[in-house]
């Protein structure tokens, strides 16, 4: 039986060497500055993007890949496999899942595509995708992969402190949450993503104290099976988190940068941790 193929959209924020290594197919989301559209990770590097985010007068828009792009990708994979597990951002936050669904329906006669709501964003989703792709590489069956996902999702969390609320506010996707953060004081919100919910975990006024709160919370959730330190253009903050959590980090803890689509919504200078708790 041919191996199950893993598909994910670019909001999983996995770097290209990881996705190439684990044979993960990434479908790029779209970034739009004014009239110009870019495919995330294909037409524009992260460095270029973040430089432009700070200088371009247009606040960029983000869009899901078109259903036809999913359809095309699935058709291509149909030549290599009978089953695809396609992991995406929750439909309540984005049209990606729906576009994938339409693409999957179009190929239903030739390929089994199982769509999975990751219940996570960014590298929270990336982490789950990596673990699942390792299992697929090692020959796990479709059912084994789906069981693994059911097992992983409740154990996967993401905590991140945002440096600014502006991007989240302008992105418009979690307006209720934004309203709760408060707009008069320069508050650093700590977000907690778990099981499809983006929660306001804490509101703190200073970055150092926010990171201290974050570390304190994360430490109570140890031990960890996998951890990723994450940031948007702030590697030193991810490094500091790594030091504060050093005694709890499992082997193969990576530091990765959040990509452009999610980066637009969380803004520059965010940092946090994505992890899977040990069973």
């Amino acid at each position: 039986m041919p191996p199950v193929k893993i598909v994910v959209d670019s909001t999983a924020d996995l770097p290209p060497d990881v996705t190439a290594d684990l044979d993960i197919t990434v479908i790029p989301c779209l970034i739009r500055f004014g009239d110009q559209t870019f495919r995330e990770g294909v037409d524009m590097s992260r460095a270029e993007f973040f430089a432009r985010l700070q200088t371009d007068p247009h606040f960029p828009g983000t869009a899901a890949p078109a259903p036809g792009v999913f359809e095309e990708t699935y058709r291509r994979l149909a030549a290599e496999t009978d089953a695809v597990v396609s992991i995406h951002l929750s439909p309540q936050y984005s049209g990606i899942f729906n576009a994938a669904r339409l693409g999957a329906e179009a190929v239903a006669d030739s390929l089994r595509v199982v769509l999975v709501d990751a219940g996570q964003i960014s590298l929270g989703m990336g982490l789950i995708t990596m673990v699942v792709a390792e299992a697929a590489r090692d020959g796990a069956s479709l059912q084994e992969i789906l069981d693994l996902l059911d097992d992983l999702k409740p154990r996967t969390h993401l905590f991140a402190t945002l440096n600014t609320l502006d991007n989240l506010r302008r992105g418009g996707r979690v307006s209720g949450l934004v309203a709760r953060v408060g707009n008069l004081l320069h508050i650093k919100p700590i977000l907690h993503v778990h099981q499809g919910q983006i929660l306001l975990h804490d509101r703190v006024r200073s970055w150092e104290r926010a990171q201290w709160h974050l570390v304190e919370t994360v430490r109570t959730m140890a031990p960890f099976e996998r951890v990723m330190l994450i940031h948007t253009q702030r590697p030193e903050a991810a490094q500091a988190l790594g030091q504060a959590l050093a005694d709890l980090l499992p082997p193969h803890t990576y530091t990765f940068e959040v990509g452009t689509t999610i980066g637009i919504h969380v803004g520059i200078g965010a940092a946090g941790v994505a992890f899977i708790q040990a069973r």
Partner: peptide
């Protein structure tokens, strides 16, 4: 239809493509 399917943007674009 094909062009819209490949170029659909956003929720409204996807619906238009459909």
């Amino acid at each position: 239809a094909h062009g819209a399917l490949m170029g659909a943007r956003g929720n409204s674009g996807v619906i238009l493509s459909q």
